[in-house]
Design a binder for these strands. Structure first.
Length: 259
DNA sequence: CGAACGACCTGTTCGC
DNA sequence: TGCGAACAGGTCGTTC
């Protein structure tokens, strides 16, 4: 569920709550997840986003990695709040409790030594150079939308923002990645930057489930131009928004201004 | 090698 | 109202 803006939101909110607080306890309720005993007695001294993963650096020298996948959520609770349904693990700090909620149980956690060679994926917020994208897409005949969502190439773009970026750039999601012109890569880079930055300011997109660390909905859904707008009018050209299936994922676009 | 597809899970919504 | 099918923000392993 959470894409880059949602994960970035959680990272920033974790900095305001859990950073430098001693971890008193950690409990795991889902046998699919690894034990988190090694969190006890240490503290988080840094937190950052890597693609859609949350990386928390521990005072013990280890790293605590969390990927929320489709339905994972993080919630900051007071000491005496009741445990929400689908709680998969909790981490208790001196000033509150971090709860991971995940109905579909796809989320993954990991405590590991810091990795010295990190992923080669591009972070679309820090460096997103049209020339570099164009080079990476040489010989790639998959749809541009799937290319934008390849986490090994670009870290953090998922289904909602891929649809929105391509609409903003006026490019059809089915176009082969290698077929885009320099001008079109330029538009993609620009659209990606402005859409992700605004979505972060909005604390993400709440279609149904997404909530931030404090249980609040995001507000970017007010800015969506195509995602989940099948049958409605394109805000740029008034044509009807279509929904197609690309590799089994719902794909929303305007057939008129995204040719 | 690259691209497509099923699997992993559970909950919600939609059509009959 | 009830029931099954389709669908959901992600990624991985397998297959073609």
């Amino acid at each position: 569920m959470p894409e880059l803006p949602e994960v970035e939101t959680l990272c920033r909110q974790l900095k305001k709550t859990a950073l430098f607080m001693e971890i008193l306890d950690a409990r795991v309720f889902d046998p699919k997840l690894m034990p988190l005993d090694r969190l006890k007695g240490t503290k988080i001294i840094a937190t950052c986003r890597e693609g859609k993963s949350i990386k928390m650096t521990l005072a013990s020298g280890m790293e605590f990695l969390l990927h929320l996948r489709m339905t994972g959520r993080l919630l900051w609770q007071g000491k005496d709040s009741p445990l929400p349904s689908h709680a998969r693990f909790t981490v208790s700090f001196e000033n509150g409790i971090l709860v991971c909620i995940d109905p579909r149980r796809f989320a993954t956690v990991c405590i590991q030594h810091p990795q010295y060679f990190t992923s080669a994926a591009i972070d679309p917020l820090s460096s997103f150079l049209p020339q570099q994208l164009s080079t990476l897409a040489e010989r790639r005949s998959l749809p541009i939308k799937n290319f934008l969502m390849e986490q090994g190439v670009i870290g953090g773009i998922g289904n909602i923002y891929a649809c929105e970026i391509l609409h903003e750039a006026a490019i059809n999601p089915s176009r082969k990645a290698k077929s885009l012109s320099a001008t079109e890569w330029e538009k993609i880079a620009q659209a990606t930057h402005s859409i992700l930055k605004r979505a972060i300011c909005c604390r993400g997109t709440t279609i149904s489930d997404w909530r931030d660390l404090f249980g609040q909905k995001g507000t970017y859904q007010a800015y969506l131009k195509v995602y989940a707008r099948e049958g409605q009018k394109c805000l740029r050209c008034n044509a009807v928004i279509h929904r197609a299936s690309l590799s089994g994922r719902g794909t929303y676009y305007c057939p008129s201004c995204q040719r």
